[in-house]
Design a protein around this nucleic acid. Sequence first.
RNA 1: GCGGAGAUCGCAUAGUCUGGUAUUGCGCCGGCCUUGAAAGCCGGUGGUGUAAGCCACGGGAGUUCGAAUCUCUCUCUCCGCGCCA
Length: 428
Amino acid sequence: MLDIELFRENTANLIRADHDKRGISHDKIDRVISLDNEWKNALQKMELARRERNEAARNISEAKKSGDAERADKIMLEVKNIGTAISELDNQANNLLEQRDAIRMTIPNILHDAVPVGADEGGNTVHSLHGSKQEYDFDVRTHNELIEMNNWVELERAAKIAGSRFFFLKGDLARLELALQQHTIDLLTGKGFTFVQPPAMMNRAAYEGVTDLADFEMVMYGVEPDKLYMIATSEHPLTAMFMDEVIEPSLLPIKMVGISQCFRREVGAHGLSDRGIWRVHQFTKIEQIILSHPDDSWQHHEELLQNCIELWDSLEIHYEVVNICTGDMGTVAARKYDLEAWLPGAGSYKEVVSCSNCTDYQANRLRMRYRTSEGNESVHTLNSTAVATSRALVAIMEQNQLADGRVEIPKVLQPFMGGQTTLEPCQW
RNA sequence: GCGGAGAUCGCAUAGUCUGGUAUUGCGCCGGCCUUGAAAGCCGGUGGUGUAAGCCACGGGAGUUCGAAUCUCUCUCUCCGCGCCA
């Protein structure tokens, strides 16, 4: 959510310029500005009424103290009905405020200047290329074929007990998943990130602070009757962790590496490319989070990307870094890089990492500030996938496959697998 | 799950019984002093508004001219009991 101050005076031009870049109309901006003015007027009226009541209350108090019961009774009679008048004015003002903020919540963040302009994902630009396409002297298999021939994943039995798009992970591939976690956490804690394991469920108030509300209904699993939501990523609890707090500036930047199971309904997601374990309802993801001073957030955004590059280079995976364009950005991020890994079986680059600077957009909603000598300012929030293990496994399987269907284990993960160099088939 | 006690500004605390508009300390910021720092002293330090003012005592509702204070309700924390990986 954008700071309301931006809508006032000539700073609203910044929002207008951003909407022009995104190719959307200014209607919502104008609506917020006019509702803000109406609200301020309504608030003024209500405050005057309250002032009157406060004065009366003070006078009654004084009259009683001086023993003038008659005068106290007289004033009490005069202001008998002021309470109902105030609550009516209060309702009017609150109504306007709610309308204003309901619209404000849907207005997207202001994009960084470097974001390329484009209508959709076709407008994304390549930032950098890492590694190169490997040559295979046999017909490459898709990850679906590899997991099936090696008995590494059970989709049908998972569907039987839970539903489609759930999976059992078995044998060496499950061990590799754990190795990926350990390697990633070691690398990031070595860079000063604090390892944090968050709650896997969150309440609605916290959720409204971190996510786009239109996405929310499509993505989240609700847990009844407790009115909780299964987290879609550890980004959400880690970012919301300091909700409603004023953070000591000496604590900034707060760097965290979180791990969690991620739960997504994936409503409407279908298609051949989504078979196997590429797009599933539940997966493990390791996430980098930084809560930063506003002045440092762009530097930290690059730092998060560099960490991803170091991690994925260490796995010897071929991928490209993509600069996400205006039309593909979404509401929360001001700038976003994706890492797209080459999948030889699928014959395309596909998203494995998303690295965003959300500036003060989430922090404004979460009321998450730091202390300055002039008052409290919103912090900036940044998040980046380190590794979503299911997708990383797909990339490793497809890129490192051998003619017989086994898979070479990335060298850096071999120590976590007892020195083993290839993933062997599961017996059942 | 049952019983009891609690939630007050960044932290800690007074005020709650008996309704009259939030106390004090720490921390932090600024100033004085100092070669510099510490200490000491002075001032400032919840939100909003240009301001008068209005709002704010965990959230919501109620009683009242007036609620931190009384009533109801929800959430969370602590203590004891029960159950439990």
